[in-house]
């Protein structure tokens, strides 16, 4: 009884959220995986049969699936690398103690407050593909300063790289905040010790600060990576459900609502979950292990 007193109150407190998450997250996930393993290919079908992994294999025969996976990878690489590099660079500048740091920090962090939908609507105009006398937005600007113009997200090969630009714009301020906290967490004594040992300023960053930033970089990578793999709202706002910017989440939406194929939609959803899990699970394992070490 005495023992129960120590753990029971805590358990009761978290019980509602455990139940809610159990039903609405894990229950739904399980339901989705079960649906993905049936042959329910129209919503009016009642007597669906279990077909195992058939849907998971069949989808690789579809050219559109290959295209949307390729797009998701291109988008992820440009977005994650772009936001990390830009965020790191901004934090690096801040860390040097420039004047008006607080103002700049707020300015860079502000895009975070905007939803992807709003960002997308503005950038759709900025990235208009009209060129020459029909140019508006960025192409107009590039035309004026003599830079080459581009079709942006409507480019058949590199459109997804353009699509990542609004996402980089939006999230790099957040990455900056993470890195800035990381920079500030590096004790001044360590830097001084390195300098006393004759290390150059670049060497201090290379050998002292960067290694200590590794956990921050990893967290940023996980956060950006999972946003990127399930991106939907930004794509819908900029381009709608066009094939030229198709990604798995948009493909899933079209499959369920237009093609009316619940099993295939669930299969795509399952692949998105698995792709995100590849990012998140190693991170969870790593952080649990680290907490045990403490």
């Amino acid at each position: 009884m005495r023992r129960a007193r120590t753990w029971l109150p805590g358990l009761l407190l978290v019980a509602p959220s455990i139940v809610a998450i159990g039903v609405f997250v894990y229950g739904m996930l399980g339901w989705n995986f079960r649906l993905a393993m049936t042959d329910k290919h129209t919503s009016r079908q009642q007597d669906e049969q279990f077909v195992g992994l058939e849907n998971f294999i069949a989808i690789w025969d579809q050219p559109r699936w290959h295209l949307s996976v390729e797009h998701a990878i291109k988008f992820t690489v440009v977005f994650v690398v772009g936001a990390l590099v830009l965020g790191w660079f901004l934090a690096f500048l801040m860390e040097k103690g420039i004047r008006g740091e607080g103002t700049f920090r707020t300015i860079y962090l502000f895009p975070m407050a905007v939803s992807f939908i709003a960002t997308g609507i503005v950038w759709r105009w900025l990235m208009n593909s009209g060129q020459g006398e029909r140019a508006v937005g960025l192409n107009r600007l590039f035309d004026a300063v003599g830079l080459p113009q581009w079709a942006w997200f409507r480019d058949q090969d590199w459109g997804m790289a353009a699509m990542a630009i609004p996402a980089v714009w939006q999230m790099s301020g957040y990455v900056m905040a993470l890195f800035l906290a990381g920079f500030r967490g590096v004790p001044e004594e360590l830097r001084e010790a390195a300098r006393v040992d004759g290390c150059t300023e670049w060497g201090v960053y290379r050998h002292v600060v960067l290694p200590l930033l590794r956990p921050v970089t990893l967290s940023a990578l996980i956060i950006l990576g999972h946003i990127s793999l399930k991106v939907f709202d930004l794509i819908m706002a900029v381009s709608g459900k066009q094939i030229v910017t198709d990604v798995p989440a948009v493909f899933m939406w079209v499959t369920v609502f237009d093609s009316d194929d619940p099993a295939k939609g669930a299969t795509i959803a399952a692949y998105i979950v698995l792709a995100v899990a590849i990012f998140v699970i190693p991170y969870l394992v790593w952080s649990v292990r680290k907490e045990k070490d403490r």
């Binding site: 094939i243 237009d258 093609s259």
Partner: peptide, 13 residues
Amino acid sequence: QPHLAAIGEAVGL
């Protein structure tokens, strides 16, 4: 509607 979605996909590709 499903047929139209498939045609739209083919045209987009």
